[in-house]
Design a protein around this nucleic acid. Structure first.
Lengths: 223, 223
DNA sequence: AAGAGTTTGTGAACGGGGGCACAAAACGAG
DNA sequence: CTCGTTTTGTGCCCCCGTTCACAAACTCTT
């Protein structure tokens, strides 16, 4: 669902992990965290797979892309594997993030505790609406959209979140890219285009519901 | 990403559309709406594909699963195609929806205009917190979680949205299923298990960011 | 030390989806 | 009516991802 594959230029010494696997690693990480909190020291691929809601063969193959971190006949060491996955997807570091658009969704995102606990730190909330500047939401300063460049360079921001209306999304994205942001999470219901080398992921709430509606309708037709 | 393929029992007279195509139909629909608003009466697969951010061959193949709604040498009639897609995914009907969990996310969802405009009507916001019952958020009554069954049967709700904390998610899902809900959109960061015949889709905000972080980290490693 | 029992890691087969490229169909000009 | 132009619908091939099934590796018991 990522807009483009990262334009690998040269070198290519880095092991590359299939996109589908990358998307599941965070799920495994969460399952491992839950197991660790419950005091589990070791787990089999079967247990972890169940906790993550996937097939155990798939889990093992996924993990095998990272290396051989399990022990045959025994299973995986929860803490060790947890660390390895976290390191691989980069959540051991600190990722400064800016959110643009302080509507209901922007609010919800700023307040979302799941970000902070995974190494994402919201450094600013930007909005075009001047009347809200200076406000503090969830401990984060609301700033002018024009401050984007300064904020990005000051904090070394690489990831931007678009929670603005669809009409503004492309503009916001262009500005982000111009400031040096190279990864964008887009919640606006519109297609945005970006140059090569910039990753875009899109989350569309109403599309998810429409997909459910399609299947729901089919279920109804069968009877 | 849907948890299970709908357990087709017998009959099977209904054309079945690949899952990947179903996920893109709402995107096409939105692009068509935009074109219609701009006064466009007809469009080629190339134009529509660009607007939707996909390859034109893929677009044509996707549309061909619905039937032959285009005219060779001319293109597609915007209004006609719009209606056909809307009918196929079921957004010409009215879909009553309940949202459970009235935190920041529940608020944002209740206020989201994109639902209403696509045939989804939020009939109730449920929360375990008694102090909030009777409140009205975005024109929707906040009710007790125990009212779920009554609300579902009164309004004929088939789709439920979970915006509750992870710890409560499985419980909420079980109750939903018990009340007859057969499609669930889960925003809680946890794996929920449901019986066959119930569709679950999952949206996890922090997972999307983690996937971006992985690619961001790799970009950094190349230099 | 050897055999029975577990569990990982992976080769191989399979299925779905993406994209190219072309035939079929419609339209317009002359 | 015929020819050239445009654009759809789709057959074909390829690649990615999923799953099965098994050999390799480790533990434990006797």
């Amino acid at each position: 669902m990522t807009a483009r594959t990262p334009s690998r230029t040269l070198g290519e010494s880095v092991r590359d992990i299939p996109e589908a696997t990358v998307a599941r690693l965070p799920v495994y990480l969460r399952a491992l965290n839950t197991l660790a909190e419950a005091g589990t020291r070791t787990c089999s691929s079967e247990e972890l797979a169940t906790a993550a809601g996937v097939n155990s063969a798939k889990l093992r193959k996924d993990l095998s892309y990272l290396g051989s971190y399990g022990t045959r006949g025994v299973g995986y060491d929860v803490d060790y594997l947890r660390y390895q996955i976290a390191r691989e997807i980069g959540v051991t570091q600190d990722w400064p993030v800016v959110i643009v658009g302080i509507g209901n969704l922007g609010h919800a995102l700023a307040n979302y505790s799941g970000f902070r606990s995974r190494g994402f730190r919201v450094v600013a909330l930007l909005d075009a609406d001047h009347s809200r500047h200076g406000e503090v939401v969830a401990g984060v300063d609301v700033r002018a959209f024009d401050d984007l460049e300064e904020i990005v360079s000051t904090h070394g921001v690489a990831i931007g979140v678009i929670a603005a209306p669809a009409a503004a999304a492309q503009d916001v994205a262009d500005r982000m890219v111009a400031c040096g942001i190279t990864s964008i999470l887009n919640f606006a219901p519109s297609v945005i285009s970006v140059p090569d080398g910039v990753d875009v992921r899109k989350v569309d709430l109403s599309i998810e519901l429409q997909i459910l509606a399609y299947h729901e309708q089919r279920k109804a037709q069968l009877s």
